[in-house]
Design a protein around this nucleic acid. Structure first.
Length: 512
RNA sequence: CGGGGCGUGGCGCAGUCCGGUAGCGCACCUGCUUUGGGAGCAGGGGGUCGGAGGUUCGAAUCCUCUCGCCCCGACCA
């Protein structure tokens, strides 16, 4: 049992923070609500970026970068948008610091128009698109940007909700509503398959209700994941913005019919929140559990030896094992790599830079076991004198602590890749089972209340979405409509609140 | 932003009520013995007690203000 991590049953919120701390994913910053993403946390983000960026490009998008600062007036152009974001905008009003009479520094050089730090970039990008787009021949525009944004949240939680966070925002402009709608759904699909394939987080896809949608969107689609405490987490959203921003920013094109038309635009994004989703979906009371596809270190080799002669034997055997897995070139190249004291670093993959580490630090094996377990390294390979004699090593799987003995002759790149793939699919399977076991159907409001109070998780129910009804349910149960799932039943049923006949089933849950 | 809790070496805490030279465990450094699931002994380094004012001969301790974190609520990716 980990000494420095509270158990999930004991205190889930503290457990979450303890896991982040123990795995050194992030740290608090001196500024409220902001966090420092440490190398192992950032490596996970880089893995997410690399994978998603590939998927974006495969679907025809290109990257660009738009500025951090946005004229305040931009935000006010789209009525719903400004209403949604005004309360959480950081505003830049001055251009410099000056010494005041009392000798202290204070803001000076007041700006003519205040600038806001982007909470999202629809307005800035809309303004540029209105310049760039003249005719239907310029369409579609398919741009993504990787950026930071800032939303001055009242209550923050590491990765799940921080004042500043990293994300990607795709912004596209199209000739027709249908094209925009197709794009919106396409990118939601990209998110859903990414979440499942790379993060091993199974997600439910659906449409947000009017109450829950993005300010300024006609339609918002979402992928929703389920965390181990039974709360839902919105993992990504894709918006069909209709012509709202096109009208606000004059994004017009001359059509095939020789007439001016407003474009149809979309936007879609996922953020560093996904790292929070990973942690809460997979980790356990021993610490972090990472899906191999995003793990910075895929395996760690722990030597076990007493005397110097044993050490030489073990070292020699480890080198043979590494050579079998990585080939002699990488083993040789690693000799010249500068790494942390006592750790040898080998690249398992030179594209993703995922590593295999050998832990030669002068601590005891037990310490190392806990150390790497907390950091979520998928596999631990133990090599002691007995293993050397038997020409084999012990492989321990982080997922379930399963132990197996593998002969040196059986080691290869394919072998490890196979073990990693197996880990990845087991992890997804486990998360999917948890999600399915915690998705229930309610036929009455009372039944739903009971489920939410006792079990948590997703509750499917017939329901007529509406501001008043949703507000009442949230006030009484803390649950909101996470989405109107795409897979709807053939038959209609009775709304759990009004009793009216409705074809619509929705997914309720308490959410982060 | 409202209610509650907490800030004391890197981490976890005692000391605060009742003011009197800042302590414990883990971690860290050195040495020896150790090493198959969190080692033992010896020695050593590190804290203006979140910050700023105030009361006092004297403040971790009392008072005022402030900052941060956690929990619950309202808001949100």
């Amino acid at each position: 049992m980990a000494k420095n991590i509270k158990t999930r049953a004991d205190d889930y919120a503290q457990w979450y923070l303890d896991v982040i701390k123990a795995a050194q994913l992030a740290d608090h910053s001196p500024v409220r609500g902001c966090m420092v993403i440490r190398p192992d946390g950032f490596a996970v983000w880089e893995a997410i970026q690399r994978d998603l960026d590939h998927r974006f490009k495969e679907t025809g998008h290109v990257n660009a970068y738009f500025p951090l600062l946005i004229p305040q007036s931009f935000l006010t152009r789209e009525a719903q948008h400004v209403e949604g974001f005004a309360m959480e905008c950081a505003v830049v009003t001055h251009s410099k610091l000056e010494k005041k009479e009392d000798g202290s520094l204070g803001p000076a050089g007041e700006l003519e128009e205040p600038l806001i730090i982007r909470p999202t970039s629809e307005t800035m990008i809309g303004s540029m698109y209105s310049d760039w787009i003249q005719s239907y021949r310029d369409l579609p525009v398919l741009i993504n940007q990787w950026a930071n944004v800032m939303r001055w949240e009242m209550r923050t939680r590491m990765f799940l909700r921080t004042a500043e966070f990293l994300w990607q925002e795709g912004h596209t402009a199209h000739e027709t509503f249908d094209e925009a709608e197709e794009e919106t759904r396409r990118m939601l699909d990209v998110y859903a398959s990414f979440a499942e394939e790379s993060l091993a987080v199974p997600v439910l896809q659906g449409r947000k209700t009017e109450r829950e949608k993005f300010p300024g969107a006609d339609v918002t689609y979402t992928i929703e994941g389920l965390m181990q405490d039974g709360k839902a987490l919105q993992c990504g959203t894709s918006h069909n913005l209709g012509q709202n921003f096109a009208k606000a920013f004059n994004i017009e094109y001359l059509g095939r019919d020789q007439k001016k038309h407003h474009c149809w635009t979309t936007s879609w994004g996922v953020s560093t929140r996904l790292i929070g989703a990973l942690i809460m979906a997979h980790s356990d009371d021993d610490g972090l559990v990472l899906p191999p596809r995003v793990a910075p270190t895929v395996a760690v080799i722990v030597p076990i030896c007493r005397k110097d002669e044993e050490k030489a034997k073990v070292r020699d055997f480890i080198e043979r094992a590494l050579t079998a897995i990585l080939g002699p070139e990488e083993v040789a190249a690693a000799r010249h790599r500068v790494v942390a004291h006592g750790l040898e670093s080998y690249f398992f993959d030179h594209v993703t830079h995922q590593k295999i580490l050998v832990d030669w630090r002068d601590t005891r094996p037990g310490d190392k076991h806990f150390h790497w377990e907390q950091r979520g390294v998928p596999f631990r390979l133990e090599v002691g004198p007995r293993d050397v004699d038997a020409e084999s090593l012990v492989v321990k799987r982080r997922l379930d602590r399963e132990k197996e003995t593998v002969a040196l002759d059986d080691l290869s790149r394919d072998w490890l890749q196979g073990r990693l793939d197996d880990f990845q699919s087991r992890l997804l399977e486990r998360a999917r089972r948890f999600r399915d076991e915690n998705t229930r159907t309610a036929t009455s409001y009372d039944e739903m209340k009971k489920i939410l109070a006792n079990e948590g998780g997703f509750v499917r129910a017939y329901f007529e979405p509406g501001e008043a009804a949703e507000e009442r349910i949230q006030a009484e149960t803390k649950a909101s409509v996470r989405c109107i799932p795409f897979d709807q039943p053939a038959a209609s049923g009775k709304c759990i609140l009004s009793g009216n006949d409705t074809p619509t089933q929705v997914l309720f849950a308490q959410a982060y």
